[in-house]
Design a protein around this nucleic acid. Structure first.
Lengths: 249, 249
DNA sequence: CGAATAGTGTCTGTGAGACAATATATG
DNA sequence: CATATATTGTCTCACAGACACTATTCG
């Protein structure tokens, strides 16, 4: 132990000081259609063999947790982050002494949002090892699947965080290309809130105030062409209101 | 290193694994009048000698961060938690490798709310050592004082978290006795939002829906007696709206 | 043309905010 | 009585939600 550390410990009384292994766990979300998906890993080894788990890894000595989250996002999913718009933010820290039966591991969970066009999910490194990540529909997983460690809690917390945050911010736009039509954004809201009751007309009216119209239009298979927008204002005022229906609080 | 740990590390590739010291930092809030106060410690030693800092301490091997926060709340402030209603929740984790110049310390910051009657602040162990905590007005400290480490960021994040949270929950009631009058709750909102523009009549109307009237009344120095309420519903729907004025975002 | 979709118009109910009015306490 | 305060009443404006309507595209 260095003298610096000894002086440090002298600051504290009593000096019970122990070290922990610090990891990040990632909740990686992407949307197709009106379904929210998460990138999950099937565990090959003990403990929780065969169960689904969140991707993650150690925080290194020279980086903070957010940096580790970005690095692991690239390493564990095999994503080319130059080709995909991505957003990462801290979720919460899980520190129960028993959360990993092997040793003390404290994990700073992060929320990662990947932009999609709403039709296909980003490729998750098909060539990597057996423990590579695959997309799973979130609300179905939460309803039926067993998850390793405390990853069910983390995943549920992540969904709730995102569901709440898109009420008063345009965080939903992180799940959609930089330029997007309103139906894409609407599908994100439906996917996160697990509902289909969003009136397209009212949705348009409520959101256009926070967006910039590029003047361009795009067309789907059928129907009138939709205007293409970019985000003007990160905050929504007044906020969107989540339908009371499917909300599981 | 135990065999368990070795097997554990084999899960990861590459196995760069390092340990960190894990601490909790506490943002302890209480309200008198319409002013939000935080319990802060004046640092005696290097680094940041003389600067104000948040109370905190190490997470011990057998406890999680929340438990450590409760323990440190009692130890560092000398508060008798049997005599004071208190609420503690996790805020965020601060993990920059340079946040403590002496060694790698990762801190899970927590928000602690102490109930007061709005007239006096809880006593902060007057008999303890020189580094004992004292109350400071939060918005003044943020405007003028230097804080040690990254504690200014943590304190500002805590205020913003609380300011946002009382918009859609009755978390403000954690800063007030279990049974309270509406003016007490209104003062909490004014203190946290750093404003005085809350109309008493409208405030009453908006909140009574989430409260239970005990039927009893209390009287201040002058004026009509105020009804005494308890919390019925933890969530506010529709939410309170924060006045645009003083909000510093 | 028929089907699907985008965006606008319209109506109604709810609630926020401003402020007046009333009731009730103290000194 | 003068003053302070709590609570209710009233009015207006803004907006959410429901839904009809129009315009525009594809097949």
């Amino acid at each position: 132990m260095s003298t610096e550390e000894e002086r440090f410990l002298a600051d504290y009384s009593p000096a019970e000081y122990s070290s922990v292994a610090l990891t990040v766990d990632l909740v990686v979300f992407a949307v197709t259609g009106s379904t929210l998906h998460a990138a999950l890993v099937r565990r090959g080894g003990h403990p929780f063999r065969g169960a689904l788990a969140l991707p993650g890894g150690f925080v290194q000595p020279d980086e903070d947790a957010l940096h580790a989250a970005w690095r692991e996002l690239e390493e564990e999913t095999g994503l080319d982050l130059r080709a995909h718009r991505a957003h990462v933010e801290q979720l919460a820290t899980y520190s129960s002494p028993e959360r990993d039966p092997r040793m003390r591991v404290v994990s700073v969970a992060h929320l990662a949002l990947l932009a999609t066009d709403g039709r296909t999910l980003p490729d998750l490194d098909p060539g990597s090892d057996a423990a590579s990540a695959h997309w799973h529909p979130v609300h179905e997983v939460l309803a039926s699947e067993d998850l390793a460690f405390d990853h069910r809690d983390i995943l549920a917390d992540a969904v709730e965080r995102l569901a709440g945050k898109i009420e008063y911010t345009l965080t939903a736009a992180k799940l959609v290309p930089e330029e997007f039509a309103l139906y894409q954004l609407r599908h994100v809201y439906e996917a996160v809130w697990n509902t289909d009751k969003l009136d397209a007309g009212n949705f348009t009216r409520k959101l256009t105030g926070a967006l910039t119209d590029t003047g361009r239009k795009i067309t789907r298979s059928k129907g009138a062409p939709a205007a293409v927008f970019t985000v003007r204002n990160e905050y929504l005022s007044p906020p969107m209101t989540r339908p009371a229906a499917v909300t599981n609080r």
